[in-house]
Nucleic acid binder design. Structure first.
Lengths: 338, 338
DNA sequence: TTGAAAGCGCTAACAG
DNA sequence: CTGTTAGCGCTTTCAA
């Protein structure tokens, strides 16, 4: 049916070996041969069989994107914009380089086994979209072509966003705008990103002499809603929120509005991520942009380059994106007021 | 390194063929042999090499999820919740059945070629998350293990949501709530889903004797925002919106709010999809639920079952989810008012 | 520079 | 029921 390399070789009047050499563009075949093979390839419309190639080389041209789902099922995947963004970041760099993207949603309970399976199916490498440090280290021990997009054990190559700095900046900005009762809604207690953003908030409040008004959400809209509601009841004088993810922030806005307060007139709010949720909220959220697509694209390029990722570490900046959920209440300059 | 089937066979004292039979659970090996092989597998921790298996059988245990990106780049992917939902639907049915999920974002410009590549890498089958009828038919001609999640040429097996009915019901509901100036924001003119939802709106307005107040968005938040703004300027007396997707609806809510109107007090709005965008909006959106996860899971199961999908067609209902963006302005019963 | 030949690990006829 | 024997399509030593 489909032409094989044998067909190409025959048509070109060379051996399979030579055909293979020119097709893979490796030295050891030359001038006339190359031309003839190329001609044959074109004439036959030959496409190498990737499976056979993978069997022979022991390596599949695919990148594994791994997300460990802590929730039961994979509900997380369908609702949180984060995963889409890493896919959107990886996808374009795979265009035209003949590589595929495999997605793995690994259940927390069976994570070790499932990760072993993935590690043993040698590919171009794996990108951890979300994972715990222990699992990342576990995987890395079996497969060195790995890049994590969240903070992990220092042994694992990683691209990290400046979560601490971003959170600090958010609070600092809120402070500059004149807010003094700045509450925070943090993410899951064990999530590395959540931990870092919380650390940033804490550092900022301490340095600025602000009270610590914290609650936990869980990186879900409902969590943000409930936490905001509760904080507002306990501390009715809150005048601003720092929320560790836009999804939660969207929920928080709803709770704030429902409490009879207006955003940003009565309370300002800064989210984190700059995901689609930020822009779907009403008003659109001022937020700290996590460059997920850029990070994912970088990770993919790293793996594509081949070779074990020599303990690569890179930090990505987290920057403020001003929209309409913040307002200057002090004497200073205007900022995204409506 | 890793044990092969040969190792298993040797340890079990049988031939490779027999080992293969019991491992693949096919008849033609029996009693004692089976036990010995199973024991050997367990002792060695043997895992079949999927690549070798794929080469031998000519079929990879993977499901291809294909989305044709009409936009330049793959920006769509990162912002629209739809793709996440189909992934979230497919993923769980692949758990424990030793199958992988490959994601393909095919650029419209090079679609035919890229689709040919995918079709020729024989897998368990392909799911069209989003595609145009012509491309679907093109692909189907080369690979019959295919299911589309959007309306296509009638030759291609498909799972379709009742977009027409859903849109009709949305308008009808708005009408029941007492609204008489019901505007619509439609999706891309060439998108099958958008076309159907538009048809449903048109049918409803005609049957109910309502004016046609339509604008087009593009299934993006910005599109919804701009269209709503424009409609409101042209027809200041609009009292309700039917918006063909939640993302656009979120944008519309922002525009409505910005125009000084309140949702739902001054204008009601019903979205479409029931995606994360509906619930991130403020107020949360009443919407027509598209059962994307269920559809995707069904598609995956169909492909997993093997064999060419014999012109399977199935329609999924689209149902109203009441939240807080609609309000009864007539004498009737209450509905999601705040 | 080239070709012959030996696999990669597994499945599937076919013959016993 | 079982083992032998060919491949699947490609890469890659190893000689020539």
């Amino acid at each position: 049916m489909k032409p094989t390399i044998e067909d190409v070789a025959q048509l070109a009047g060379v051996s399979r070996a030579t055909a293979s050499r020119v097709i893979n563009n490796v030295p050891g075949a030359s001038g006339p041969s190359r031309e003839r093979v190329h001609a044959a390839v074109a004439e036959l419309g030959y496409e190498p069989n990737e499976t056979a190639r993978a069997l022979a080389t022991g390596r599949q041209r695919a990148i594994d994107v791994i997300v460990v789902t802590t929730d039961p099922g994979t509900g997380w995947l369908g609702t949180h914009p984060y995963v889409s963004r890493v896919l959107a970041g990886v996808m374009p760099v795979l265009q035209g380089v003949n590589a595929q993207l495999r997605l793995h949603a690994v259940r927390r309970e069976a994570a070790a086994d499932e990760l072993d399976d993935i590690a043993s199916s040698t590919t171009l490498g794996a990108i951890f979209a979300d994972i715990t440090p222990d699992l990342a280290a576990h995987f890395y021990r079996r497969c060195r072509r790995t890049v994590s997009m969240v903070r992990t054990d220092s042994s694992v190559p990683g691209l990290e966003a400046d979560n601490v700095g971003g959170a600090y900046d958010a609070v600092d900005r809120l402070h500059q705008l004149g807010h003094r009762r700045i509450a925070a809604i943090h993410g899951p207690a064990l999530n590395p990103c959540a931990i870092d953003r919380r650390a940033g908030y804490l550092r900022a409040t301490q340095r600025l002499g602000l009270p610590d008004l914290s609650a936990h959400g869980g990186f879900r809209r409902e969590g943000g809603h409930d936490a905001a509601q509760q904080l507002l009841e306990q501390h009715p004088d809150i005048d601003a929120f720092f929320v560790a993810c836009d999804l939660m922030a969207a929920g928080a806005v709803q709770a704030i509005t429902a409490s009879g307060r207006r955003v940003p007139d009565d309370v300002s709010i800064i989210g984190f991520d700059d995901s689609i949720a930020a822009v779907c909220s009403n008003p659109p959220l001022t937020t700290m942009r996590l460059p997920v697509e850029e990070m994912a694209a970088t990770a993919a390029r790293l793996l594509l380059a081949g070779g074990p990722v020599r303990s690569h570490r890179q930090q990505f900046p987290v920057e403020l994106v001003v929209r309409e959920s913040t307002r200057d209440v002090g004497a200073g300059s205007a900022d995204g007021s409506r």
